Amino acid sequence: MNALAPASFGAALSAARDAAGAQHYPQGTLYVVATPIGNLADITLRALHVLEIVDAIACEDTRHTQGMLRAYGIDRPGAQLLAVHQHNEAEAAQAVVARLAQGERIAYVSDAGTPGVSDPGARLAAAVRAAGHRVLPLPGASSVIALVQAAGLVAEGGDERSAFVFAGFLPSKTGERDTAVQALSREPRSVVLLEAPHRIEALARALVILGERRVTVGRELTKQFEEIATVAASALPDWVSAGRDRTRGEFALVLHPVAVAADDGAEAERVLRLLLAELPLKGAVKLAAEISGAPRNALYDAALKLRDGP
C-alpha cells in the first residue's frame, strides 16, 4: 500500500465519526469490511468508524492489519486482532462465533480489497450465518470492479456487455490451467481473472490460444505505478516481457466479450423466432441474446420487425 503518515487521516477519522457515528451498529454482528487494494485513501468513512468501534478485528494477517490501522490513526492492542486466514478459517470461525454469541461486534478484513472474493472470509461468513448471527457487509475497493470500470467492455458492433464472469485465479499447474483457458475460450461474456506476479508470464502464454480476443491488464491497480493496457491475447506475452516491472505487483485481467460473427445472424434470428412464439418480446430478446451471444440491441430491433411485420 502507499505509505501515508497517520496524521494525514486525522480529518478522515473525525469525519468518519461525524458521518457514521449516528448509525446503528448491532451487537453480535460480523462486519465484513472492504479495505483499500493499494491506495490508503480508498477507505470508506463507515469502514473507518467500524474498525474503531468493534470489540475485535479478525484479519488475514495481524501484522499487516496493525500497520494499516496505525496509518489511519486507529490504535488497537494486539490482543484485539484475531488471525483468520485460509489455513485456519474453519477453526478460527468457531472462536469468532463464540464471541458473537456473547454480544461482541467483530470486524473481518483481508489483506486488501473485499473479503470473500478470492480472499478468505467466505467460510467465516457462512459459519456466522449458520450459527444464526448477522453478517453485515461494508462495501469498498475491489480490483475486479476497478478493472471492469476501466476496460470499456463493448463488443464489436457497439453492443455493451455489462455481464461478466469472475473466474479469479486459474489453476497453477500447466495442464489444469490450459484446460481452464480452453473452457474460457467458449465463454462469450467478459471474464475477469486475477494473477500473482510470479505466474503472470505463464498465464500470458496460456491465453495466447485466444488469438485476437482483447485482454485488458491491470497491474498494481490504485497504486503509484498503476498500469492498465488492452492488447490482443496473442500479444500478451510480448506485453509482459516488454518491461522489467511488468512481472511485479498484483494483476487483474479481463477478457473482453467475444465479437459476434456476421454469419451468426441467421442462427440468432432463428432462436429469436422460436422464443417469440412462447415468450413476451423483452423476455425473448434477453434469452436469445444469452443463447446466441448476438447483440441485444440488434435482436430487439429484429424482434420488433418480426412482431410488427414489414
Rank of each mutant, 00 (worst) to 15 (best):
L272P: 04
I106M: 11
E227M: 09
P197V: 12
P171R: 03
R46M: 04
A7Q: 15
L4T: 07
V271C: 11
C59G: 00
G38T: 01
A56R: 15
E226V: 11
R246S: 08
R46E: 10
A127E: 11
A11P: 06
G293E: 02
Q23T: 09
A196P: 13
N2A: 10
G28R: 06
L136Q: 15
A22K: 12
A284H: 12
R129Q: 14
V154Y: 00
R244D: 14
C59P: 00
A95N: 09
A298P: 03
G265A: 15
A204Y: 04
V128F: 05
V217T: 07
A294P: 01
L281R: 14
V32L: 12
D238E: 13
T179K: 13
L276R: 13
T65W: 10
L207Y: 07
R270I: 06
A151W: 08
L194T: 11
A125P: 07
R219G: 13
Q23K: 14
D263Y: 05
G10H: 09
G67R: 12
G132P: 12
H256M: 04
L136V: 10
A146Y: 07
F225K: 12
A16S: 10
S14I: 12
G218R: 14
L40T: 01
Y31C: 10
L147T: 13
E89K: 15
A289T: 11
P36W: 05
T247N: 04
V260Y: 07
S241F: 03
A131F: 11
M1C: 07
L138M: 06
G211S: 12
S162K: 15
L274G: 12
G157K: 00
N2T: 09
R17E: 09
D119V: 14
L299F: 03
L193M: 04
E91H: 01
V191T: 13
E278R: 15
A204M: 06
Y31T: 08
D75E: 13
E104F: 07
R105F: 04
A15S: 13
L147W: 04
A127S: 15
R134I: 09
A242E: 02
K282W: 05
T114I: 10
A7D: 13
D159M: 05
D301R: 13
K173E: 10
T247M: 04
R307K: 10
S292L: 07
P295H: 03
A196S: 15
G168C: 12
T216H: 03
N297L: 05
R186Y: 06
R70W: 03
D61M: 06
V208M: 13
L287W: 07
R129I: 14
Q94E: 05
T174E: 05
H87S: 09
V148N: 04
H198K: 03
G21S: 08
D238F: 04
A262C: 06
V117N: 02
D238Q: 13
L275P: 01
E220P: 03
L40A: 00
P257I: 00
G249Y: 00
R205D: 15
L51C: 09
N88D: 00
A202Y: 05
A180V: 07
A107K: 06
R123N: 11
V84F: 11
D119S: 14
P139R: 13
V231K: 10
H85D: 14
L30R: 07
E91F: 02
A34I: 04
V97I: 15
